[in-house]
Amino acid sequence: MKKVLALVLVLSFVFAGCAFGADKPGKGITIGVVYKQSGNPYFQAGVAGFQKAADELGFTFMHDGPDDGSSDGQIRIVENYIAQGVDVLCISANDPASLVDVCNEAREAGIKVVTWDAPVDPEGRDLDVEPASAKVIALTQLDSMVKSVGGEGQIAILSAMATAPNQNLWISFMTEALKSGDPKYAKIDFVGVVYGDDEYTKSFNETQALLEQYPNLKGIIVPTTVGAPAVSKCIMDAKRNVKVTGLTLASDMKEFINKGIADETFLWNPTELGYAASFAAVAFVKGEISGKDGETFNAGELGTLTIEKAADGGTISFLNKLNVFNNDTVDAWINIL
């Protein structure tokens, strides 16, 4: 009897196992992931999120980004994915406008378009997944800078490409806040924006020029992961007391945070972003969501996410999580970001 019971038990486990294996919700789904540029560690972390979700959901995915970070390079990659017949495209766009046509072609071919990290214009996408609203991201950095410089002094911004949509949006929120007459910004003198083009040397040279131009400069906000280490290195070499904050990878900034050049920097976890985007993608293929305002989807470890109306007229879903890297937390993040 015992033996029979054991056998039944074992068999039921086996069946359950089979059933479970077959029931992985993403089985048979192919996702094409397109990011802004190859060789950028930020997107490696993003791809790790897709990998994690793929292990849980059982879908397969391909990923690629253009060599030169251009939008026509992304169009080429999207064309290739359409030719291969993927089910969903997950795109982090270099420019919201350029990819609209090719995304629409994909949608005509029955491919869903989910954007993550940087959106395509609403007429070319089904859903956008973002870490937090642009205003929160912008003001977090600004307030941290104000705290670092003690509430008064000259500050500047070093951005990425002058055409970068995310950065431009954040900068507009920052300048708006500075002009709003809020007393906590009253003694802050904002001297201007320079562009490092997401190139290390250009960011370095622009920082040198800033430091020479404004001998009383107190802080630089760097809302781009490529610029931040260049700015910090330049300040360290110049031995100036200028504070840095911005959006950075932990591994890039550990040294500078430990040396006190940056008090704290921020980043959402791109791994979580990729993870959430892939759950949204699978939900789309399964027909669980259609990208409308008010729908919800299950995002695994991240709980349930709600789809809202976005400022640009499309729909968006926020993770609302921003990680802080400071002297205490940076070591924990260094191998992740």
Binding site: G39, F43, Q44, V47, P229
Partner: peptide, 18 residues
């Protein structure tokens, strides 16, 4: 240049100060 992002070299990482 195409050799640099190969997996046996830098992959998608870069060399950073640490």
């Amino acid at each position: 240049r195409a050799l640099i992002p190969m997996n046996w070299l830098l992959g998608m990482n870069k060399v950073n100060p640490t």
